[in-house]
Every structure is written in C-alpha cells, then in structure tokens.
Computed example of a mutant assay.
Amino acid sequence: MHLHLLQHSPHQGPARLADWLSSMGHSHTVFHLAAGELPPRLADCDALVLLDGPAGPLDPADQPWLKRERRLVEHALDSHKPLLGIGYGARLIAEALGAVVARGRCAEVGWHRVTLAAESPLDLPEQFEAFMWHRDVFALPEDAVTLGGSEASPLQGFSWDGGRVIGLLCHLEATPESVAALLEHGPRPDGHADSPHAQPDEALLADPQRFVKLAPLLDRLLSQWLRPLAA
C-alpha cells in the first residue's frame, strides 16, 4: 500500500515511521508543506499520516498550507481510509471532529509514562514510556475513545470510527536522530523551563534503550491501524 505523510516543519519528520513502512513493504511520499509543497490528493494514497509541527494556535495566517490541509482532513474523515495524526497532526484531527484544542496547563517534554485506558481499543501495554514534546493539547472528540494518559496530560490520544482514525499526543516514532534535531533546531515548548514535567535537554538522549523500547510499540500501533487494509 502507499501512504502520504504530511510534514509541517523541516526538523519534525517521520523518523522511525518511515523505516517501519519500508520494512513492511509499503511505499510512502512525504509532502513538505512548510517548504511550499501543496497537500496531496486523498485519492492517490491508501492511508494518510499528519506529522507533528509548529506549536501554538492553529493559525492559517502563519501556516499558509493549513486551509488546504483542513479540507484534506475533512475528506479523509468522510472516507474509509486510515488517518493518523501525531502532535500537531492529532490537533488538526481533533479540531476537525469538533473538539477543543488549546494550550495545556504545562509543557510536557522528555520521557513520561502513559497509562492505557481500560476502554482503549489498541493492543498496547497497560503502561509504557513515550517521548513528549508539547504544550498544546486537545479534548476528546465526540464518539471517540480515549487511548490513555500521562500525569501531565490525561488525554494522550484517541481513536475514532473503530480505530480507523487515531490521534496521538505522544511520540512512538522518536529516534535519537529525530530528538537531536529537535534539540538543535526546534524551539522548546512554551513554558518548558518552569514545568515540573519537562526534563533537561541532556536527559532526553541519555538512555538509548528508551528508543529501542519504542520500536515494538510503534510496530503494534501501526499494524493495528493498517490491519483493515491488509485483510
């Protein structure tokens, strides 16, 4: 199958997600919206991924691609195609489903424990550690199911339409390279210096095993998400 990946920032790419797709024999195209590329046609892909991107309000004045992307998200929600959003992408999906998207009470940066909700349809461990890089959050959309939460963010993700649509606040796709790029190029989430849930920069790359443990979690998530297409 072929997937379209929408990238909103030059330093927030697909990371391990691209490696997983290639290893499973799937092709993909990355559209660099911040570089002026237009969002693709939904008809040209089997599934759509919205990657992370700029912090702050979803403002089309600052993000000229946003109006077209919003229309694409609406078409994807109305279709039968799998749709996955991570960080900024999850905020766009939540907004399109009518949920409130706003600034959270504090920044969440680094490695934090996520507790899976009892009602979550995803087959993931009851507790796992994931990488965080955000201040903005979203409410649970109507008819969506919570995936679980962390201490700072009770809603770390949701599924909608029987798991066809997934939004994730946390990052299971993170790699040492992708985190190093954030530290080098990306501004820290607003309020990170005063947040009790923001770890110092040196702690984010200190333990390589944390990234190793993310890989099977991403595999389980993506396999479940794309399973209907493989049936």
Rank of each mutant, 00 (worst) to 15 (best):
Q7D: 07
H11V: 03
A15D: 06
A15L: 09
S23V: 00
M24Q: 15
G25S: 13
H26A: 11
S27Y: 06
A34R: 11
G36H: 07
E37T: 07
L48K: 06
L51A: 10
D52K: 11
G53I: 08
G53S: 09
P57R: 13
S79I: 05
L84G: 02
G89V: 00
R91A: 13
L92Q: 14
A96K: 06
G98M: 07
A102D: 13
E108F: 14
H112G: 03
V114C: 09
A118M: 05
L124R: 01
F138M: 07
A144L: 05
V145T: 15
L147Y: 03
E151T: 11
I166H: 09
G167D: 01
L168V: 00
L168Q: 06
C170F: 15
H171R: 13
S178P: 09
D190E: 14
D190L: 12
G191A: 04
A193F: 08
P196C: 05
H197M: 08
D201N: 14
L205V: 06
D207Y: 01
P208E: 03
P208C: 07
V212E: 07
K213T: 10
K213R: 15
L214C: 13
D219Y: 08
D219K: 15
Q224G: 14
W225C: 06
R227S: 15
P228N: 03
A230S: 02
A231V: 14
A231M: 10
